[in-house]
Design a protein around this nucleic acid. Sequence first.
DNA 1: CTTGTTGGCCAACGCTTGTTGACAACGATA
DNA 2: TATCGTTGTCAACAAGCGTTGGCCAACAAG
Lengths: 185, 185
Amino acid sequence: MTAPRRSDSTRAAILTAARERFAADGFERATIRAIAADANIDPSLVMRYYGNKEKLFAAAAEFDLRLPDLDGVPPDRHGAALVEHFLDRWAGDDKLLALLRAGVTYEAAAERMREIFAAQLGPIAARVAPDPATAATRAGLVATQILGFALCRFVLKLPPVADLDRDAAVAWLGPTVQRYLHGSI
Amino acid sequence: MTAPRRSDSTRAAILTAARERFAADGFERATIRAIAADANIDPSLVMRYYGNKEKLFAAAAEFDLRLPDLDGVPPDRHGAALVEHFLDRWAGDDKLLALLRAGVTYEAAAERMREIFAAQLGPIAARVAPDPATAATRAGLVATQILGFALCRFVLKLPPVADLDRDAAVAWLGPTVQRYLHGSI
DNA sequence: CTTGTTGGCCAACGCTTGTTGACAACGATA
DNA sequence: TATCGTTGTCAACAAGCGTTGGCCAACAAG
C-alpha cells in the first residue's frame, strides 16, 4: 500500500531502459550512464532510486516464467506445450534475455537463473515424470534444450536457428522436450 | 617456417593465461593486467606481442572442433558419437568455453562461433541428412542442444546438469542429436 | 507566505581499464 | 670490443566506470 510518488514514471523509465540495455549488452557492458541516457535522466538518479548497479539488475530481472499448468494438457502434448510457451515468453519479454546474457559472466545472474529453473521448472517435471527421482534431471535437460535454443536464436544468431519459424521450432523441439519429460532412461 | 624466438615461451604463457581468463571471466572481465599477472610478465608485453585485446582474443580462440568422420560410424550411432566427441572436446579445451562465454557479449566471438559451426558442423549434417535442403537447419538444431548443454553444465552450473555423468549425458542427448540429424521433419 | 520534502542536475571523486613510450639488460654479430 | 635488434620493466596517459554530495527548482503542508 505504498503511496504513488511523483517519481514513479522516472523509476519505471529507468527499469525499462535497464532491461533493454542488460538484454542487449550484458551486465558489464550495460553502463549506468547509458541506461540513464536512454531514460533521459541523470546517472545519479539511478543510484538514488536503486542504490547501486547490482540492485538495479536485481530489480530489472525480477521475473516469473509463468509456466502453464500441464494438468490440463494431453500428456502427449506436454513437450510441444512447453516449447510454445517458452517461445512466446522469450519473444515478449526482455528480462529472460537479460538474465541469459548477464548470467554468463555475472554470478548473481547465474544464481538467479538456477533459482528460477529449479523453483519453476522443477515442480512441473516432478508432476509429470514417470519416476520422481529423475524429475530434477529431466527439468535440467529441458533447460539445456530451451536455453540452448534461445542462445543460438537470440544471442549468437546462428542463421538456420534464427530463421526457423515458430511452427517448425515447435515441431523440432517439442519431441525432444517430450522425451526429456516422459521418456525412459 | 618462422625461426624460433627467445620470446616464444613468453608468447605461449600469455596465450595460455589468456585462454584461461577468457574462459573463466568472459571478454570484458578478463583484463590484460590479470592475464599478464598470470603469465608473470608486464602488461605492455601483451600489447607488443598481440597488438591489442581483440587480437589477443582472436589468437587465443583460434580453434578447430576436430569433428569425427561419421562415415566410419554406424548410422544409428551418429548422434551418440557426436555427443561423445563434444563432451570430450569441451572438457579438454578451454577455448570452446572461452568462445561461448565471450560470444554472449562480444560480437567478434559470436561471429567466430557462427563461422565454426557453419564450416565444421554444417558439412557433417550435409553428409548424413536425408534431404540436403534441410542440412543447415539440422546442423543448427544440433548446435542448440550441444551449446545448451555446455551452457547449463559449465557456465550456469545447473546442479542436475552439472552432476550428470558422461554415460548418462550420452544416453539422454544422443537420441536427440540422432533425431536432428536423421529424423523426418 | 513560509517551511520542509521531493525530484532532478551538475561536478567531481577514486579507481580501473587499454594502451603507449622511454629506458635498461641481454645476446648475437661484426 | 662496439653495435644492434630483441626482451623485458616502469611510469604514465586518456578515457570510462560506479558512485557521492551539493545545489536548485518544484511542489505540499502549515
